[in-house]
Amino acid sequence: MLEVKGICKAFGGVQASRNVSLTVPEGRITSLIGPNGSGKTTLFAQITGFQTPDSGQVSFEGKDITGEAPETIARLGMVRTFQIVQPFAGQTVRENIAVGAHLHRASRRDALAHAEAVASRVGLGDRLDLDAASLTVAGRKRLEVARALATDPKLILFDEVLAGLNPSEIRDVIPVIRDICDSGITIFMIEHVMQAVMSLSEYTWVLNQGEVIAEGEPASVVKDERVIEAYLGKGMAQRIAQRQVVHA
């Protein structure tokens, strides 16, 4: 459904993406993990048109969308959420979601009605008339999800929707994400909460210093030596292995 081919992007001397290639299959939940600063959000930004890659190609449903504007890409059916939540402060939850709903609905009445339906789907049904700025972090994350969902997308890119939530909130949101996938929307997510990666995603790519260093099922990827070293430092994989031998 989404194909990224050999994307490179540099900011001055910092190589944010090094020849990144991946293919997101339709109808599944896949994920992108990696240590802080490994270029995950930058990759999302390039996929959704907020940044243009220096080289390489992004295609969505077989169509080359490299360098297209974000709004064009959203119209084609691929939307992203933001890691740092970006509510339209001063507008109500309903109005916030309606902005997304308007993408394929010209009438105000239809958009507001759809916004209500989407709100109840993500668990914001009782907060429709609140100012978006008054929501808690968990509420704002749900709002990010709701706005993206309201655009009737085919593929949603979630950028750390679970970050900053406590364990019970995470438990509440995970079924929402699964439900979105079950309704036929493909999900590609950046996530630090490993519990979510392990339980939700079927396939994961690991990014380190702008480069894909491993990919596969989450359970096997987390055992990969290079992944452990990327997160914990050089030599850690070996030391963990030794310790496991000692304990055994």
Partner: peptide, 17 residues
């Protein structure tokens, strides 16, 4: 609605099409 969205957060508005 689009105008208010652009006023309040242009990036987020563009992300929503």
């Amino acid at each position: 609605a689009s105008l208010a969205a652009v006023r309040d957060n242009e990036e987020a508005a563009r992300a929503l099409g």
